[in-house]
Write a protein that binds this DNA or RNA. Structure first.
Lengths: 336, 336
DNA sequence: GTGAAAGCGCTAACAG
DNA sequence: CTGTTAGCGCTTTCAC
């Protein structure tokens, strides 16, 4: 789109394109080019408002200075905030970011990875769907910088930055037990997704460690794609069947929100009727009366670690694999 | 990054690069290339997992198949949802999107426009900051496809897709008046930003049309960058001074959220103590008891219109200017 | 200190 | 029906 090219500048200045190229890339140092020429060329560049063509440069150098960001759903607050930070750090480092959402759809995720490759991104940060394992392996084999985010594939030697989900669920469950709750229900999505499994494991381990009956019937699992109404109904049925339940632990914030809806619909109050806690923080949880106790993710930190990991992988090749599990934070409010 | 090139394929297949190029671009139609060759080349392409280099193609064709999206803040639910839809439609049309947030900072916005240009985007959707007018004019002069979003510059002949903010505020205020409120406070950000001004105008016009005193003291204006605490204090001071206020109309959802905080902090209930409404919907508003009446934006529609407008501008040059004001929707719940 | 020239991978005249 | 060739705008040896 930029009309004027390197050549135009060179012609105008009466020098060669090499000289101009050297100057715009600040390689005019160590006396290579005379100050007078540098000044003259720079003046013309400014006058003509010349901008080097990034695409041509990319073609020549083999670097696109673009990274790809593939999240589950950019319209979700968690991922949106993550994206913001990633974008910021990337821009500061001279990288653009192109992004997309998978909506947890394997097919779509696969196409997006493909699309990013086509665009010659220098690296990808990705919230993988469960079926993406082989594609990730392929990427690794081709030595493309990749960092997994939010979830990972245990056993796969790939960089990742995730929350310590096990610890989060373990701590929250222990906290509930210490407060005297004896029959804590865990409401979650039935998923092979690593992060959700870890949460379930943390919950179960805490029950075991505190010698509480670990009755399977106290975990309610939804499949990912049933409607809000169906979830509401399932919660009701579950709670009718398990009268002894005294606390509700939701494994994600969108489930927690549905939990809130259930409570208000049935005129139940917390913590009187049920102790109520959720994984992931949310604006709603802060402002409700009572405010809801959650295990929160250090969102900015997660994002920073992820983008820094990717940048590191891009810059120096043989850094091996960067794997980080960040600690969650228990935010005790008044719902339990 | 892709190892194999067009040339490799050509050599392997024993044909020229032209032939391969024609085939991968589906220009092998009307009997140009023999089916046998097409089949053979395609087979090799598949075997070698060849992917044409987008950058080289872009350099050659002058098209980057990338559009830029510059929003105020991608971590904000409204913009995040917008982005999701834009991304979807763009991808469906073969476009990638690179994005960034301005945080309402003129300097940053300017740099982002520059960055997008460098990246040779084919068009930009932008939520302009107030100081970006001249940059937008420059873009237009250079005939680059641009569509303004969420706000625009009255008088500037540039494409835009925005909400009819005036109507939204007018309708909501009228609704409040019809419900019997006589002293409606309008709480907003002091901003030359067109969209906020329109809302203020709508509010004032409604008061005028219903012959209600349009006392300036009933509008509370914050500057954009004061803290939450300061806003809370200012609301308190304002309400102490204006005892007759019987309804609160917040001009954006993040202001509305602070309003909710104010109400709970002071143990005020709605609509008993104050009728309470807000511009823009939000999850919190839906789940609060009582749920909050809002004027909502048709988010998906806004996004679709914006990206379609941009795509239109990109495809056919002389379509002139596309300007759309979409109607808001009053969602009456129980807070007024 | 500076320039000539090759070439990144692809497309598109044009030629046959 | 298929091939030759000239660039797109830039970086980078290598030569002077």
């Amino acid at each position: 789109m930029a009309r004027v090219s390197l050549k135009d500048i060179a012609k105008e200045a009466g020098v060669s394109v090499t000289t101009v190229s050297l100057i715009i890339n600040n390689k005019s140092q160590n006396g290579r080019i005379s100050p007078a020429v540098v000044a003259r060329v720079n003046k013309i560049i400014k006058e003509k408002n010349f901008r080097p063509n990034t695409i041509a440069r990319s073609l020549r150098t083999g670097k696109s200075t673009t990274i790809g960001l593939i999240v589950e759903d950019i319209s979700n607050h968690f991922f949106a905030t993550i994206s913001k930070t990633i974008e910021l750090v990337a821009n500061d480092n001279g990288y653009k970011v192109i992004y997309a959402s998978t909506d947890n759809d394997n097919q779509k995720a696969r196409e997006l990875v493909e699309m990013m490759q086509l665009q010659q991104v220098e690296g990808i940060i990705i919230t993988p769907t469960i079926g993406l394992k082989s594609d990730i392996e392929e990427l690794i084999k081709q030595e493309r910088p990749v960092v997994l985010f939010d979830r990972y594939f245990p056993g796969l030697s790939v960089s990742y930055v995730v929350l310590d989900n096990f610890k989060g669920a373990y701590d929250m469950t222990s906290h509930l037990i210490k407060k005297g709750y004896k029959n804590i229900a865990f409401i979650t999505i039935a998923s092979e997704m690593n992060q959700l499994q870890q949460r379930l494991n943390g919950y179960e381990q805490a029950l075991n460690d505190h010698h509480l009956a670990n009755s399977a019937s106290l975990v309610l699992e939804f499949s990912y794609d049933i409607s809000r109404e169906e979830k509401l109904k399932a919660i009701n049925k579950f709670l009718q069947k398990n009268k002894k339940v005294d606390a509700l632990f939701f494994s994600t914030n969108y489930l927690g929100i549905i939990g809130v809806e259930y409570m208000t619909n049935h005129k139940l109050t917390m913590p009187k009727d049920y102790g109520f806690v959720s994984f992931d923080d949310h604006e709603l949880f802060k402002f409700l009366k009572p405010a809801i106790t959650v295990v929160a993710q250090p969102i900015e930190l997660l994002a920073t670690e992820a983008i820094n990991a990717l940048l590191t992988l891009i810059k120096k090749k043989n850094v091996g694999v960067i794997q980080k599990k960040l600690p969650p934070k228990l935010i005790v409010r008044a719902s339990e």
